[in-house]
Design a protein around this nucleic acid. Structure first.
Lengths: 197, 197
DNA sequence: TGTACATCAGTGAACGCGCGTTCACTGATGTAC
DNA sequence: TGTACATCAGTGAACGCGCGTTCACTGATGTAC
């Protein structure tokens, strides 16, 4: 343990620079979006020279990929917890999905490739985590719809939550009560927009 | 009319440089995405010096805004046509929406703010066109659901098509037959994911 | 317990790059007389 | 019909900027003996 004592003078060796870089990168991502994710700015925030980052990451892309992996892992956890709360219920899974995106808008965008294509397509770990998310989604739906209908239902639910999350993140909706709007939309996922009569 | 004859030698005065810049910008957008939209590259493609663009646009942001306006106008047209094809039918409107995004993925992303925040938030013309799109959507739904349910239904349908469009654009779905997948998802918008029994 | 030394994790300076934009200019156009 | 001239729409050179990355280096750490 050679980390600086909190409040103490900075030491030459940071102790856990990798972690510190990722934390600063996430903050930057949330403050200014994926397009502003830059190696020099990340290093600046940690209080370290830019080249120091190269002892922990191959390049800037690698930082983006690590962030995307982190994000997918956290989201998979949340969805697993929601599934445990009630397989076959749309509200818990849908709300968990949208809530994650709303709590981490910059990260969520990065996870879907904005700014860094490598972050959504270049990593086997990301691909594996996405498969896990997909499996959670289908497991939840298997309790509700016939087996042959599960793939379409999963794409339906994913599209709905993905789109809703992005619209809310972007401030495209002017809903006075966003949580209520989210619940209303998810309720429609269950009933559909049935024709009258 | 002082435009160069097709195939003829380029003239000093272009004739319709503004239009040519926008056309080149759209091509660039589709080839390399919003992040790669650059003034110098646009000018290069038209075969003109970069400063020439400043006679037609205040700056790069203004080009992005003009593209976003163009995109929203085209999309509004398509949705109006779909509404005419059958108010209250989800398939025509949903398919038109997703088809537009799939045909113009780079433009669609720009319209929702990727790369240039100004393109989705900085223009009154964009805001007006978006309101028009929203009005078309709600008009289509008013024929199908009770008046008090229209706002939630519209957000539902918008979220679904927006999310589906982006997932397809990003190649996140591995559907063998994308059109069939789109139809299946839109069918579920009508019926919902009803609980068994 | 002390010391030599390999290894690890930082540093500052510098590289080349491409960008958006500004500047002073020149060539082309169209209009008034 | 011809000519002077204002205006418009281009040009090339240059600006400053911030970026990702490389380099040769130095300070700190930990391990073998």
């Amino acid at each position: 343990m050679n980390r600086s004592a909190p409040g103490g003078p900075p030491r030459y060796h940071h102790g856990d620079l990798r972690r510190a870089l990722l934390t600063a990168a996430r903050a930057l991502l949330e403050e200014r979006g994926p397009a502003a994710l830059g190696l020099r700015e990340i290093a600046r925030r940690v209080g370290v020279s830019a080249p120091a980052a190269y002892h922990h990451f191959e390049n800037l892309d690698a930082i983006a990929v690590a962030l995307a992996e982190e994000g997918h892992a956290e989201m998979a956890e949340r969805l697993d917890a929601a599934l445990a709360a009630g397989a076959g219920l749309l509200a818990p899974m849908g709300e968990a999905y949208v809530a994650f995106a709303r709590a981490n808008p910059g990260l969520y965008r990065l996870m879907y490739g904005e700014g860094f294509h490598a972050a959504s397509a270049g990593s086997e770990a990301v691909a594996a985590l996405r498969r896990r998310t997909w499996a959670t989604l289908t497991a939840g739906l298997a309790a509700r719809v016939p087996a042959e209908a599960v793939p379409a239902a999963a794409l339906f639910l994913w599209s709905l939550t993905h789109g809703l999350a992005l619209l809310m993140i972007d401030g495209q909706t002017d809903a006075a009560d966003p949580e209520a709007a989210i619940r209303a939309v998810l309720r429609l996922a269950g009933t559909g927009l049935a024709k009258p009569g």
